[in-house]
């Protein structure tokens, strides 16, 4: 028999994993996954982001893919959309940068300026 506490735990744990089907109000992390992105190593980046989200048990964060944004030389590109904030575009991301982005930007709301497209073009 499951107690009420156990049911609540199941509810929370499962909701984290299936919430992408209902709630689209949370943060969205979009990874460029066209041929250029994949060739530049977008898949390990994507996996690193997912691992990190799972590790920290982050709910209402959605990881999505998108096609070619047109700046193939800057791939892998990761865009972060947070409700009520401007989109932030990170370029030349690798798994370790991705982990930092999740830890600082997604969890603490602090944009990792050094990795953004603005820093790159300077």
């Amino acid at each position: 028999m499951k107690t009420i506490q156990e049911l609540e735990e199941i509810r929370k744990k499962t909701l984290d994993t299936i919430n992408v089907r209902k709630d689209r109000s949370g943060t969205r992390i979009v990874v460029g996954m066209a041929t250029c992105g994949i060739a530049a190593g977008a898949r390990p980046v994507l996996l690193a982001i997912m691992d990190e989200i799972k590790k920290h048990d982050l709910s209402d964060v959605v990881v999505a893919q998108t096609g070619c944004i047109g700046m193939c030389r800057l791939e892998p590109i990761v865009e972060v959309y947070r409700p009520g904030e401007e989109k932030v575009t990170y370029v030349k991301v690798n798994p370790s940068k991705a982990i930092r982005i999740v830890n600082e930007h997604i969890m603490k709301g602090k944009v990792v300026e050094g990795y953004t497209i603005g820093a790159e073009s300077k």
Binding site: T17, V20, M50, V63, A64
Partner: peptide, 9 residues
Amino acid sequence: MEMYRSHVM
């Protein structure tokens, strides 16, 4: 349950 980025319903 595992965490998946995409769900095909």
